[in-house]
Computed example of a mutant assay.
Amino acid sequence: MKFLADFFMKAYNADVHPSNVDVVENSNVFKPGNSQKVFSKTLMYLLSLAMGISFLGTAEAALAELKAGDRGSEVTTLQQRLKRLGYFNGQVNGNFNSATSSAVIRFQKAKGLTADGVVGDATAAALYKKQERKTTAASNSQRQAQRSRTTTQSRQAVTSTTNNDFLQPGDRGLEVRKLQQQLKQAGFYKDSIDGVFSASTEAAIKRFQQANNITVDGLAGTRTISLLQSATRQSARKPSTSVTKRPSVQQNQSKAQVQTLQQRLKQLGYYKGQINGSFNAETKDAVIRFQRKQGLVADGIPGVNTLSALENLTRRESIKALQVRLQQNGFYTGPIDGILSQQTQAAIGKAQNAYGLSANDVINQRF
């Protein structure tokens, strides 16, 4: 700010400072016609000063941090970015609330940054760095395509998303092929592995996200890919079995485990029989219906993927029922979405304090 003031004073003194004239009475400054020139120059310097101050104010605002309590379009953009990366499950509303702060902290921890929940320069750079690379890569790809004719294989390489932090519909290349292989291994994808992020690939990702109780957006973001890699590693560690001797509930699981299976199928509306721990034809039919609904291999055998999807969905339904109960008793005002968010946890705490119950008592709706 000081350099602008100095600049103005020096420029002004060049015209009207007493050191530049003999005496005021003898100066030409106030002669007819010259006063207007002085006024015009002075006005120009004042405008320059005002513009400089405005520029500094704008620059200061641009460098401002985003933190809890802030509101506006910048927060909306932040929430959208965090949601796309799989760190934010809340509502995109432009309000830097506790859910947004928690999402920022999770992102900062994952990237090895200071986990303070404040979006400063380092956090912003980590959030948007790869997104900028994607835009640059796309522009470079377009220029390269204009310069030369390429084969189908090279065109796929140009549109490959190996430098991006997420995969989305329309992407092509080796990363998409790898994604499809992992989805197929996990039991969520049945089509050909062609390296094209098609509608069937998007649908498979949504089924996987729903089964794992994360944001269902059809994008292969950081969290989705991490969970998918974990699922495929677990599947790879399991010993291979022949078609004639596959492990099944009736062979390897206890009566109590079959009862749990039947209870969960009944809770979701797939099973209407007795909870007797017997893996009968009615139980198997219920398993097949559930598998078809979730886009899994419909073989009637509750393997790892089927049991995982079943557990996640029943837990989500239980949380929904809890949210309804908390809402009816005036402790919860959020969405009935089956997500154990901070708002839901806060409502559980309120119910605990009001009724003198433990967290488990509230979760099991003993109030």
Rank of each mutant, 00 (worst) to 15 (best):
Q131A: 14
L82I: 01
Q234H: 10
I319C: 05
G117E: 05
K320G: 08
I336T: 06
G86R: 00
Q142V: 13
Q156K: 13
S192F: 04
S141H: 06
T114N: 13
L219Y: 11
K41R: 15
T151A: 09
F55L: 13
K111P: 00
A62E: 15
L179V: 03
G90P: 01
A359W: 13
K111H: 08
A359K: 15
A347Q: 02
Q185N: 12
F39R: 12
K67D: 01
D337W: 03
F39G: 10
G69Y: 05
A14H: 08
L219Q: 08
T114S: 14
N93P: 02
F208I: 03
A186G: 04
S19M: 08
K109P: 00
S73A: 15
G173Y: 01
L78H: 02
L47G: 09
R71P: 00
Y87W: 09
G57W: 11
V119S: 04
D217I: 02
F188K: 03
A124E: 13
Y355D: 09
P335A: 08
A110M: 03
I363D: 05
N360Y: 10
A346T: 09
A236N: 11
A354D: 13
L174R: 13
K83Y: 03
N28I: 07
Q180G: 04
N163C: 06
F39P: 00
V258D: 11
T77M: 10
S198T: 08
A62Q: 14
D285C: 02
K31R: 15
T244K: 11
L357E: 05
Q80W: 05
A321Q: 15
T215H: 12
S141Y: 05
F88L: 04
E317W: 06
N276L: 01
D15E: 11
L56S: 12
N20M: 12
T136E: 09
T150W: 07
Y332L: 03
V304D: 15
Q210P: 00
G52H: 05
Y189E: 04
L47V: 08
S27W: 03
L322Y: 03
L66Q: 05
A110F: 04
R147K: 10
Q345V: 09
V29C: 08
D6H: 14
L296K: 01
Q234W: 09
N312D: 10
S192R: 13
V362D: 03
I348L: 07
K238H: 12
T135R: 09
I275K: 02
S27D: 12
T150H: 09
I53P: 00
S242E: 12
L82A: 02
D70N: 14
Q156R: 11
G90S: 07
G330Y: 02
I339W: 07
S35T: 15
R155K: 10
Q168Y: 08
A115F: 01
K129W: 12
N276T: 07
L66N: 05
F96D: 04
D165W: 06
Q291R: 05
S192D: 15
T161W: 01
Q185A: 15
L179M: 06
T232E: 03
G295F: 01
Q291H: 07
T344Q: 02
Y355G: 10
S278V: 12
S226A: 14
I225A: 11
V324I: 15
G33S: 11
V23A: 09
A298V: 03
L357K: 10
R155I: 02
L46M: 14
A125P: 00
V24H: 07
L56D: 13
V243H: 09
E74K: 13
G338N: 05
N213D: 15
Y87M: 03
L307C: 07
L66I: 04
N13Q: 15
E25P: 00
Q131M: 13
